[in-house]
Design a protein around this nucleic acid. Structure first.
Lengths: 185, 185
DNA sequence: GTCTATATTTGGATAGAC
DNA sequence: GTCTATCCAAATATAGAC
């Protein structure tokens, strides 16, 4: 066994994310992260001198970039409802149809650094704002739009929990199918 | 410092639950559990010879008993809507207004024994069934009732996640307030 | 039934060779 | 930039005194 080939940063983030998502912050051990990435623990520390907190922060940064792609149709689609539907479709891919937990949920449990929780909260607020903007374009008042966007995030996060606990992806699929009617009725 | 007084089982379960709820299964260390209970680690092993898995299982058993109390108004209240409202009120107390995560969520992440996940899934199904039965009493067909009950659990679990991530209990309160209209429209 | 003390493993982190 | 080797702390678990 020779040394591992140098691995692209984005690939590393994705593999770290897999572990953090299913294990939570505290449950993600350096050994598990190391194995998922395919690098020894010491090599991970070379990439992330500040250790696990830095790895988690990089994962959330990467998630933020991916979410910009997922949310983009909300702002750019000519019809709001079809933009929401496209967002839902991209979200289904991101969460592999509800089989993966949400990092905002699992990475913010006790044990997580405060900075990480703050980062997750910012991400969630941006997500809500993007959906609220779409609802306004669909004719809702600011107040209505804000409420619908929060309701949408509640259902998405809840569906991910319930789908995982019941091992039934149809719950997540149903919620995604209802999103256009919720945000742009 | 003399030895700690013998502690009642139900008190132990409640204190263990506090730790598992905020830390998740993997994040709940024996030291944290020991400190919360007020017994030394070795004493915890005397109560739970099979260690942490046994402690977690006992916590879920205890949660199941408490949930029977929370759900009881669903079946016994003369008006379905008021029974749902009473359930919501008891749930708010159980989750301290949305500041506590749900054990079904946090105790079923990676690291948790399969038996524990199965126990959580049974608990969730019982919860859905109790709400679906109430919806039927409110006039829904079996199919409608089942869908409404799943939707209710999705919103409750999602609200607990979003309230925690945003540090905003009003999200949970709003969802609880909407429950009667959702289950018994 | 709780305690102190200890064994053993795993986790996070660093030093230095290549 | 990755590796082996190692350190130290924390985690799970057990033995045996009281």
């Amino acid at each position: 066994m020779g040394r591992a080939a140098s691995v692209d940063d984005e690939v590393i983030y994705a593999r770290l994310a897999e572990v953090f998502r299913v294990a939570g912050y505290a449950g993600a051990s350096l050994s598990a992260l190391s194995e998922a990435v395919g690098l020894r623990r010491a090599s991970l520390y070379h990439r992330f001198p500040s250790g696990k907190p830095a790895m988690a922060a990089a994962v959330l940064d990467s998630v933020e970039v991916q979410f910009a792609q997922i949310l983009q149709p909300l702002a750019s689609a000519p019809e709001v409802a079809s933009g929401v539907a496209e967002m839902a479709s991209r979200m289904a891919r991101f969460y592999t149809d509800g089989r993966l937990a949400c990092v905002l949920d699992t990475m913010t449990l006790a044990g997580a650094p405060e900075e990480l929780k703050a980062q997750a909260a910012r991400l969630a607020r941006g997500w809500i704002q993007a959906m609220a903007d779409a609802a306004v374009r669909a004719g809702a008042t600011e107040t209505e739009a804000s409420g619908r966007a929060r309701a949408a995030l509640v259902r998405i996060e809840g569906a991910l929990v319930v789908s995982r606990v019941l091992d039934d992806p149809s719950v997540f699929e149903q919620v995604l199918a209802d999103l256009p009617g919720l945000l742009a009725p």
